[in-house]
Simulated assay, not measured.
Amino acid sequence: MTIKLRLARIATAIERRVDPIVQRKRVASVLEPYIGYATPEHLVVRGRVLGRVRKGTVRAEQNRWTNLRQMLSLFLTNEVSDITVHCDEYSAISDDEGYFTILVPRDERVGWVEMIIHTGQVTAICPVFVPFAGASLGVISDIDDTMMETGAYSLWRNLWTSLTGNALTRNVFPDAVVLMEKLFENGRNPIFFVSSSPWNLHGFLDQIFERTGLPRAPKFLRDYGISETQFITGTHGDHKGRAIDVILTANPALPFILIGDTGQHDAQVYSDAIQRHPERIRHVILRAPGRGADAEDMRYVDAIRHLGVPVTVDADYTTAIAALR
């Protein structure tokens, strides 16, 4: 038995014994909404039920120790399971990690739709983006080292950057903002962000996007829960692949552009997605951070091109932006 598998089973056993004790003391005091999306049949209303949320005032000049404490506090969630959350006459029950998804029949509304969700006396507004009929394409983009500098290609650099910065100091690539503005076309084309960042960072990422001008859009982040077979459930590639499948299925009439980087095997993930969804991907754009694309990255880039999909690989988005012009 591998060390990871042993850790997973030990962690699961501890979690099962502790959760019933903790749950008795929990009440739903916060509904944390996540940006929802639309399918041909439904509005997908998403969020999480929490017992509390720790928030602190953020200043650009605060020291790294303060940043670290505030970032770690985002992970000290008190999630609440088995809570019924309502939206109109529809409802869902929060799972073991507090997550819920409510499917509301789609009507004629497009653009940003605000859905009121509630449980008991706790109420929140969940924004849902519904693409316009005139959309010409959709965009699926990674975030780390694609939209903003993270150093995800290096574990320790990634941890240092992620935990010691804050929403006012994180560096978003200026050319990434230009690229997304051109693809977004003032809201005409839907954009979706897929990242291995945990759902705990949803609000944090929203703040960064609003500050830097990146489009507000549905995000598909990762659940870092524990299962009996994995210490952290799922893998980076599995998560991204599933999210891409969900987005393409939700928008069956649109071709898509995939944007990522060469630091986390996005070329391989995108190559696999293109094979699962032939004729759906129009172009792949890859940023090459750090030392750039290695031989394995380029092998998958060549595989994508062999499938008939053009790929732009560069240290920045200059070439991709010029092609859009």
Results as ranks from 00 to 15, higher is better:
118 H>K: 03
76 L>V: 12
137 L>E: 08
35 I>T: 14
97 E>G: 13
93 I>A: 05
100 F>A: 11
96 D>H: 13
84 T>Y: 00
30 V>N: 01
21 I>R: 15
65 W>D: 15
66 T>D: 15
30 V>F: 04
90 Y>E: 05
85 V>K: 00
15 E>P: 12
141 S>L: 01
111 G>R: 02
80 V>C: 01
10 I>A: 15
50 L>Q: 07
85 V>Y: 02
93 I>K: 01
107 D>F: 03
105 P>K: 01
101 T>K: 03
75 F>G: 06
89 E>L: 13
55 K>M: 13
89 E>W: 02
102 I>V: 10
136 S>D: 09
127 P>H: 10
75 F>V: 01
56 G>P: 07
97 E>A: 10
33 P>I: 09
132 F>N: 10
133 A>Y: 05
72 L>M: 15
19 D>P: 11
28 A>W: 02
112 W>I: 14
60 A>R: 15
24 R>C: 08
61 E>M: 14
11 A>M: 14
132 F>R: 03
98 G>C: 09
49 V>C: 07
69 R>S: 12
31 L>F: 09
105 P>I: 04
67 N>M: 04
58 V>D: 05
27 V>P: 07
50 L>D: 00
61 E>L: 15
132 F>I: 02
24 R>G: 07
103 L>Y: 03
59 R>Q: 11
14 I>D: 07
42 H>W: 09
21 I>H: 13
105 P>N: 06
107 D>N: 14
103 L>I: 03
86 H>L: 11
33 P>C: 00
17 R>C: 10
109 R>F: 05
70 Q>V: 09
13 A>E: 13
99 Y>P: 03
73 S>D: 10
38 A>S: 08
46 R>C: 13
63 N>K: 04
50 L>E: 04
68 L>K: 14
89 E>T: 12
54 R>M: 12
12 T>V: 11
48 R>M: 10
139 V>W: 05
81 S>T: 07
122 V>F: 00
127 P>A: 08
113 V>Y: 01
66 T>E: 11
126 C>P: 06
46 R>V: 13
140 I>F: 02
83 I>Q: 06
51 G>V: 11
69 R>Y: 07
38 A>Q: 01
21 I>D: 03
63 N>P: 13
19 D>C: 09
73 S>H: 08
87 C>N: 06
85 V>F: 02
47 G>V: 06
41 E>I: 07
31 L>E: 06
52 R>Q: 10
51 G>E: 05
53 V>A: 09
